[in-house]
């Protein structure tokens, strides 16, 4: 286990360096002078421009700029947004909202995926299973923003069961609708994964062993079938959690959820390239670490890795 964790941690280092480098390089390669955009249509005086260039280390070679940037990131300095606020400050404010939204979505997704996937897998080829598979195909095909608009229009506007947009304090009750939308869009994959692994597990020799030693079905299904089938599902839901943590950009934007994703959404809409990049860098870092956590969770669930 220790060895597995160590190896996994070591693998993260090149990924972190690689992703930040990649993103930073894209900004570097950005056409046009980033400083000129600061001034909009005005032509700045060359001396000031020189001074700013030195201040932002733009006169240094690329690799030095990157290392300086990396050093800043390590100290929690991710730069400043277009509105003059530090990116880290915006993150501190928006992150808790995104976290709550992600928790709602992931819990719903997991419960739905496991319950429906299990029932469907056990009733393979029956009516329920077939209907369920078709619904899941449709859910897989509906883009998230279409789903979000439909929910907003029918549930929020037509029926008035929920506020179509979330208010500034983002209470749990208002996060429920966007949470359901996110859960539905993610659910189909996890459900199919659960279903497929339930079916595979049911045909495993050890399930036969469990029956042959006299265990009743009500024990074999949860202890031997479900427990084993959960490993891929939980891993997938964990990865989804990572995606949500870095902000469900579109969903947060549509429902006006004051989370990380919405901050990025606004930045994109206002064409604030550098700010978008700062956010994305932080998001990728979070994503990498959530995925690391998922891998460790996987190891915890599977004794073959735990006792390596």
């Amino acid at each position: 286990m220790i060895r597995y964790i160590l190896r996994r941690l070591l693998q993260v280092i090149p990924v972190l360096l690689g992703t930040t480098f990649l993103i930073y390089y894209m900004v570097f390669a950005m056409p046009g002078d980033p400083l000129l955009t600061l001034f909009g249509d005005k032509t700045p005086n060359p001396a000031l421009l020189e001074q700013l260039r030195a201040q932002y280390h733009l006169d240094q070679p690329f690799i030095v700029q990157y290392l300086l940037y990396l050093g800043g990131a390590l100290r929690g300095d991710f730069g400043t947004s277009y509105s003059g606020q530090a990116v880290s400050e915006i993150l501190a404010r928006t992150f808790p909202v995104t976290l709550r939204l992600a928790v709602i979505a992931v819990v719903l997704e997991l419960v739905l995926a496991v319950v429906i996937g299990l029932v469907s897998g056990l009733r393979k080829g029956k009516f329920f299973d077939n209907i369920n598979l078709i619904i899941s195909l449709v859910l897989l095909s509906v883009p998230i923003f279409v789903l979000a608009f439909l929910a907003q229009y029918f549930i929020g506007i037509k029926l008035g069961w929920a506020r179509p947009t979330v208010s500034g304090s983002a209470p749990w009750s208002e996060l429920l609708l966007p949470g359901i939308v996110l859960a539905l869009s993610l659910y189909a994959t996890s459900m199919r994964l659960t279903r497929a692994s339930v079916i595979t597990t049911m045909n495993q020799d050890f399930v036969r062993t469990a029956y042959s030693k006299g265990l009743p079905r009500r024990r074999v299904i949860p202890v031997h079938v479900l427990r084993n089938s959960l490993i891929p599902t939980i891993t997938n839901v964990g990865t989804d959690f990572g995606v949500l943590m870095v902000g469900a950009t579109v969903t947060e934007g549509i429902f006006n959820v004051p989370g990380v994703g919405n901050a990025v959404f606004q930045a994109i809409r206002h064409s604030q390239g550098p700010t978008v990049v700062s956010f994305v860098t932080v998001m990728v870092l979070i994503y990498v670490f959530v995925n690391l956590g998922v891998d460790l969770l996987y190891a915890l669930l599977d004794p073959r890795i735990r006792y390596e």
Partner: peptide, 9 residues
């Protein structure tokens, strides 16, 4: 090899 459940002792 396949007849014991790998996740239980």
């Amino acid at each position: 090899m396949a007849s014991l459940n790998p996740v239980w002792s």
